[in-house]
Simulated scan of single mutants.
Amino acid sequence: MGISERAALLVVDVQRGFADAEFWGRRNQPEAEGNIEALLDRWQETGRPVVFVRHDSREPGSPLRAESAGNALRGFVERRRGRGSGAELLVTKSVNSAFLGTPDLDRWLREVGVDQCVVVGVQTNMCVETTARMAGNLGYEVWVPLDATYTFDLEGPWGWRLTAEELARGTAVSLHGGGFARVVRTSEVLAAVGG
């Protein structure tokens, strides 16, 4: 796969508020957290750059609002902040793309010399997909290990409803088939990075 020493791991919105099943509903990929942990550990062990992304929702009642306990990064992610020997950044945002947050992610990645991005986190079809698309548009080589992401069942117009699995497959096809990113498995990324 050719993942370089300058590849950044973007850990998108792995926050406590997404554990609120009453608010979000049914989710997919119960193995996602373990895969995110494994990738974080490998990135930090090998001194590669890591970007932690936090969504500060402006929506009333959202468990991700800045003043709510759900806004915090999940414990297994927060415990890993500051532990690696590589460059590290925290980006906060209130929209879907980490590239439209604070500080300027694209500028930081270029200053650090990043040429590739591996995007993981929540939700597959929203902030992960949007961030991966923008990374591709900005010229980065992008990988999305699909089993290190998850999402929730969702209702759209006219009562159309898609399951979390259907939404994840749609994201995978759009990103991979559309040339925005290579959609892979966590095991493939770990093998490419080495130890």
Rank of each mutant, 00 (worst) to 15 (best):
A172C: 09
A181G: 05
V193S: 02
V128N: 02
L40G: 09
E165C: 13
V128Y: 02
L138C: 09
F23N: 10
C127A: 12
V120D: 07
V51G: 08
W43I: 04
V14P: 11
N125F: 05
W158Y: 11
G2Y: 11
V14H: 03
A19T: 15
V95I: 09
E111D: 13
Y140F: 13
D147P: 14
S174Y: 13
V11Y: 01
R74H: 08
T130G: 10
G101S: 02
Q44M: 04
T149G: 04
L40V: 14
E37T: 15
G194P: 06
M1R: 09
V11T: 03
M134G: 03
L190E: 05
V189F: 00
A8C: 07
G170F: 06
E188H: 14
Q116Y: 01
T151Y: 07
A192E: 01
A32K: 02
D41I: 15
G194D: 08
L190K: 04
S85R: 09
R42Y: 01
L105T: 02
E129R: 09
P60A: 13
N96P: 12
A7W: 00
T130P: 07
L40A: 10
D56W: 12
A164H: 02
V142K: 00
H55G: 05
G113N: 02
L109Y: 03
E111M: 06
S62F: 00
E5H: 13
P157M: 15
A172N: 10
R54K: 08
L138K: 05
R42L: 09
T131A: 05
A87I: 12
N137T: 14
A181Y: 01
T130R: 04
E165T: 11
R110E: 08
R110T: 11
T163M: 05
D56R: 14
M1S: 06
V53F: 14
W160H: 11
A8Q: 01
S62H: 01
T171E: 03
I36K: 03
G113H: 05
D56E: 08
R16A: 08
P103Q: 01
N28Y: 01
R185I: 03
T163L: 01
A19E: 14
W108Y: 09
F23W: 11
C127D: 09
F52I: 13
F18I: 04
Y150M: 13
L40M: 15
N96T: 14
E141V: 14
N35H: 00
V114I: 03
E88N: 04
R48Y: 02
A72W: 07
M1F: 10
E45S: 15
V118Y: 03
R6Q: 11
E188I: 07
H55L: 12
N125G: 13
R26D: 15
L39G: 01
V53Y: 10
E111F: 05
Q44V: 02
E31Y: 13
G2L: 10
R26H: 11
R27C: 10
A66K: 15
V189H: 00
S94V: 12
M134C: 08
M126H: 10
R42K: 07
F99W: 06
V118P: 06
V142Q: 02
P63A: 00
R83I: 06
R185K: 13
